[in-house]
Design a protein around this nucleic acid. Structure first.
Lengths: 230, 230
DNA sequence: GTTTTTCATATTGTATACAATTATAAAAAA
DNA sequence: TTTTTTATAATTGTATACAATATGAAAAAC
């Protein structure tokens, strides 16, 4: 924690969100207000604001009178998030392709380089973060603030889903979709950009182990064949 | 206000939002926490939560150390909101056309009737609300919860924009776009639905006036009748 | 042995007290 | 008069106290 000065609400938000990305905080984990107060050295007033923001980003679930837990989106919900992103980013990337300046393109390339570096160093939470920032930068280039804010929410939820459904250490974005996207955008090719974006999001979605059932296992089902053989 | 029992956070949110829609609260009006506490008979804790939620919906602006005021989106921002809605609702209405059941269609028709009734009775805030609900119902039919939540935010911002940029009493939706939309959706015609929706949103946008009326309101006067009922 | 009840503890929800900051207005200087 | 300064009041930001609710463990009932 920061020395001397008290940590800000935004900083605490980042710390908690980061811990979720790094899977140090697992889904369903209870976030007790008093514990967070102790950890960060602030009052419940601040912690409650952080928890409210996280809950509005659907990263934690706020249950009335029963406190906050780390959210655990069902595979079904994750698919809806990706559907929503395909719709939004289809329009965003097309607009970005029209408006992208040389400075914008340079920034995108720099972000992509940093992302590759994280992947090389096995820093998966860093890679998830930078990947999200890359997509948000496109929304910024597209120049529609409401869309940028909406995508920010979807990216936060996607980041949680990746942290949940991709085993630690396993590669998520070891391809170079982002680089191909930059080329298409830099060339002002809106249609190609859209195709790559759509395909990119679908590839990401398929990499998630969404077939894994979230619900608890039924013992009878699990041992059905063993018992039958008896 | 509710008798005896203290008003809930959600109810206060609705009251304030409703007052904005009905233009009893004008843009730039300062929302002093203590005054709202007096008006609604709750502590600042509750009022601050309401203000935070309203600010996240961009209906009020929360300025650090300087309190909350009713938001006044610039014409430029309003255009971005409509751009964003065209993108989202293009996809939403196409999906709704595919999935719309008879029960859904009946509900849409019922909502449209109620909307026409409000317009006939010059109840403009009611009409704005019902129009928003109609669009949100389409998102519900489309069956994508994240998209529904994102559209809810955009609808709230649009409602504020309409309340701001359309003079009181003047018609906003005196056409029957919604009814034509229902026909296309009921017939499962996705492409036609998209065309109507796109055109509908553009017509709404063009109806808005680009002059900014900025008279502040007095909180006690605005909520006088609500409090008297207690 | 299992379930239900009861009670103590822990946790969240709300109100309020105090601190930090900003707005207002009167007094002083230009 | 106009501007600057300064003190006072008003308002927001944060911490904490108290109330309402939920949790969990021991005792009672079945």
């Amino acid at each position: 924690m920061k020395r001397g000065k008290k940590p800000s609400e935004a900083w605490i938000y980042d710390q908690v969100f980061g811990a979720i990305l790094e899977q140090r905080l697992r889904p369903e984990t209870k976030l007790t207000e008093h514990e967070l107060c102790d950890v960060f050295g602030v009052s419940r007033t601040i912690i409650r604001k952080v928890l409210l923001r996280l809950s509005l980003d659907r990263v934690v679930e706020l249950r009335p009178n029963r406190g906050a837990i780390i959210a655990a989106p069902e595979p079904n919900e994750v698919r809806e998030i990706f559907d929503a992103r395909r719709l939004l980013e289809d329009g965003i990337v097309a607009e970005a392709a029209k408006k992208c300046s040389q400075m914008d393109a340079d920034m995108l390339k720099s972000m992509s380089r940093r992302e590759h570096k994280c992947i090389d160093e096995q820093d998966m939470s860093g890679a998830i973060r930078l990947s999200g920032d890359f997509h948000l930068k496109l929304a910024e280039i597209a120049g529609n603030r409401p869309l940028h804010e909406l995508l920010r929410q979807l990216v936060a939820q996607t980041s949680l889903a990746i942290a949940l459904y991709v085993p630690t250490g396993q590669g998520m974005c070891d391809d170079d979709d982002h680089d191909r996207l930059i080329d298409a955008i830099e060339g002002g090719n809106a249609d190609l950009s859209r195709t790559i974006m759509r395909e990119h999001l679908s590839v990401c979605e398929r990499r998630l182990m969404l077939e894994t059932p979230e619900t608890k296992s039924d013992l009878r089902t699990v041992f059905a064949d063993v018992v039958a053989a008896q």
